[in-house]
Structures are given as structure tokens and as C-alpha cells.
Design a protein around this nucleic acid. Structure first.
Lengths: 115, 115
DNA sequence: GGCAAACATTGATGAACGTCAATATCGGGG
DNA sequence: CCCCGATATTGACGTTCATCAATGTTTGCC
């Protein structure tokens, strides 16, 4: 849970001069972890709602209703997105506000283009 | 098996003037399907190998060894990537050659940036 | 201090997934 | 025509995942 897959410097498993720069196993695992977090329609909607929310942030109570999910399920999805380095959680009082990690979506997109 | 999630024109579920343009349920499902195909380290490595292969294409026999998977498993992963609209399959003789669908990775990246 | 609201965690359950062994299909050569 | 090599399909098995109900934890307020 302490890893931030999006921030890794793209190291290769092989040594020396890479003849064919195809993805190594470790790197592939890290990148797949990011896409795993994105591979759920409800999590995509969560990201979309947070992104288009006024002020760029939303609390759990704002996210439960439009998704038609229970509060524990929404909390679970948000945790996955936070662990993947896509969302940032800030607790203010009783509420937990979630916002997009700046540049995280662009970095994830970069993982795709620079495969 | 006939759907091509990547080629959809991003229609919204709501009607009329979209007050908050957050992702609809149907659109979220289609996009999640693409990321589901990308949410496996071995499939990412398959895409990477095909992309960096000479001529931009590779057959199954070229893909089985570097992934340390059995041939049926590699075929299974390739089918998922083809169904997601990311890979193109062309059968020449006994061999099946796989190549990246032009622009598919960029479109997938676009799904992320334009959430 | 104690209650209520917001959020997180736990446990359980059914579905989806990745993998392999075995088998089937298809194409080329002798 | 039959065999062989390359790929696809099927069936089974263990794991992971999404979801919910129930409960725990923290914070603000009276």
C-alpha cells in the first residue's frame, strides 16, 4: 500500500545495452497496477465526477448518490484510486475530500503511449 | 465480440444540456472494458513486444517464450487484446501475425485525459 | 461526557479472471 | 491422403474482485 506505481522511473529488468526495449516483468506489473485501478466503470465515474466537481474536489457523500452504490463500496473504490496514486485524500473535519493528483492521468496516459 | 469500444463517439447517457459533463454509466462501461484489457502485466508485455517487433508484427510463437506462459494462455491474452480493439490479427498460412491497431493506444490514452 | 454524522474497516458471498492440460481446427508438405 | 506444426478452443481450478450488511473509528456539537 506504500507504493506509488505512477512515480516510478521506468527501470528495465535487463542489464546493459537493451537490444529490444520491450517491457520488463517488474515494470509491466507496476503499470498494470495503475490500469487495474482504472478497469472499473464505477471508479472511472468517480474520477470523472471529482475532476468536474467545483473546486476540483468532492466528499464521499457527494459521490455515493450518483453511482447508486453503498457508502462502504464507494469508500473501497476511493481507497483503490488513492493507492494507485490517482486521487488525493484530505480530511477536513468529519468530511474527506478527494481531488485528482495533478498530472496523474497524464502520466497514466504516458504509460500507454510509451509502451 | 463484435464491439469496438475504442471507436465509440463518446455519447452521454443524459439528454439535453449537460450541466455537469461527468461520465455516464454506459460510457464508463465501454471505457472500463479497454482498461480491463490493459490491466494485466502479461498483456502489457505482449503489446510492448508487438510494438517493438521488427516490421511491427509478431506471431504467437515469438510471444510465448519471452513471457514464460503456455501457448493457450498467450492465445487467450491475444484474443482479449484483439477484442478490445488494440491488436490486429492477420493469418498468413499457418502463422497468425499480430500488430498494433494504428492509433489505438493514443485513443486509449485520450480516454484517460478526457475523462 | 455523550450523541450523531461522516467515513473506514471487516467478513461474507457470488462473479470474473488467469492459468494450464487436453483437445480441436486449420494449413502445408511429402 | 496422412502427418505435422501452429494456433484456437474447452474444461477445470485456484485466485482475485466487486459488492453489501454490520460494525468500528473519528470528529463536531450540545
Amino acid at each position: 500500500m506504500t507504493s506509488l506505481p505512477l512515480l516510478e522511473p521506468a527501470t528495465d529488468t535487463g542489464c546493459c545495452p537493451p537490444a529490444v526495449p520491450s517491457l520488463g516483468a517488474a515494470e509491466a506489473n507496476d503499470r498494470a497496477a495503475v490500469f487495474k485501478a482504472l478497469a472499473d466503470p464505477n471508479r472511472l465515474r468517480l474520477l470523472s465526477i471529482v475532476k468536474s466537481a467545483q473546486g476540483g474536489e468532492a466528499c464521499v457523500c457527494d459521490l455515493t448518490d450518483p453511482l447508486d452504490l453503498t457508502q462502504p463500496t464507494v469508500s473501497h473504490h476511493l481507497k483503490i484510486l488513492v493507492d494507485a496514486g490517482l486521487l488525493h485524500r484530505e480530511k477536513r473535519g468529519t468530511w474527506a475530500y478527494f481531488s485528482l493528483v495533478p498530472g496523474a492521468l497524464d502520466r497514466a496516459a504516458g504509460l500507454l503511449v510509451n509502451l
